[in-house]
């Protein structure tokens, strides 16, 4: 099973032990800050924050770099498109009808940096926070919204069930594929259209089974007295420690500096 952005890597570092709520907030603030930043000094500074965070997570930097790998194509595409189509004033080179401006190059490099830092920052969150802690943290952060009838508990419950069933469905998909292959189905030959068509006999049984599982799970939850978030106590209680305000203060201060200097 290949996770989308970054899989949790168990550890005991400063960042691992920081409260998930703080980490989620930090990541959000960080992402917003990067959206505001529009200078190379700003990018350098936020890059430095990222490096500091990687050090605080005691993860190998290679992991973090790897998390960006699937996006290389997207980044290159952004660069190329921006270079060709983003206008400007200072003409640097011209081939036939293609004009390349200085502003365009600078802009596309900034875009690329922005994507890189964003993704690396976000994956640092998932690298150091288990899915349980993540959903727990999200539920707690969203809980004030319950006053306006926002279903924070339900969303968190759905997320944690979804996460719980990922390995089950991936096993099941493999099983169905094997079953179809043993009856002569081919998945890796032919053109794109044929390949996509080949997926139908996998996806349909998978969906059918998902519904059956959902029904079973609903009975099981009901049988164990589930009635939504009301009156529910928690097995795991999130507690702030000295790390949390500290981490929060440091990161906020840094980001404020970055924004101020780069505006």
């Amino acid at each position: 099973m290949k996770p989308a952005i970054g899989q949790y890597i168990p550890g005991n570092s400063f960042l691992h032990r920081t409260d998930p709520r703080i980490k989620i907030l930090m990541t959000v603030i960080y992402m917003v800050a990067i959206m505001f930043i529009d200078s190379f000094i700003g990018y350098a500074a936020s890059g430095a924050v990222l490096v500091a965070a990687v050090i605080a997570s005691r993860l190998s930097p290679i992991y973090v770099l790897k998390s960006v790998k699937p996006l290389i194509f997207l980044i290159l595409l952004t660069i190329v498109l921006n270079i060709f189509f983003y206008g400007g004033e200072t003409l640097w080179a011209q081939f036939w009808i293609i004009k390349i401006y200085k502003e365009a190059i600078l802009f596309s490099v900034k875009m690329a940096l922005r994507i890189l830092i964003l993704v690396a920052g976000a994956s640092l969150l998932t690298f150091t926070t288990s899915s349980i802690a993540l959903t727990d943290g999200l539920e707690r952060l969203m809980s004030p919204l319950e006053f306006i009838h926002f279903p924070a508990h339900d969303i968190a419950m759905m997320m944690s069930i979804a996460l719980r069933f990922i390995p089950i469905f991936s096993d099941e998909a493999t099983r169905i594929m094997d079953a179809q292959k043993s009856r002569g189905a081919e998945f890796d030959t032919g053109g794109l259209i044929k390949k996509v068509k080949g997926l139908v006999p996998i996806i349909i049984p998978l969906i059918v089974s998902a519904f059956r599982r959902a029904e079973d799970l609903a009975s099981a939850m009901e049988a164990r007295c589930y009635r939504g978030g009301k009156g529910r106590t928690r097995f795991k209680v999130l507690k702030f420690t000295w790390r949390d305000p500290l981490a929060f203060a440091i990161i906020t201060a840094l980001l404020v500096c970055i924004i101020v200097f780069s505006l």
Binding site: S131, L163, R164, D216, L217, R224, F235
Partner: peptide
């Protein structure tokens, strides 16, 4: 199809959580 929690102890805690047992 009947295990809800992401670890054994969390799953076992699901019922008591619903019943509002103190942590």
């Amino acid at each position: 199809n009947q295990i809800i929690g992401t670890t054994v102890e969390e799953d076992v805690a699901f019922g008591p959580e619903n019943l509002g047992v103190p942590t």
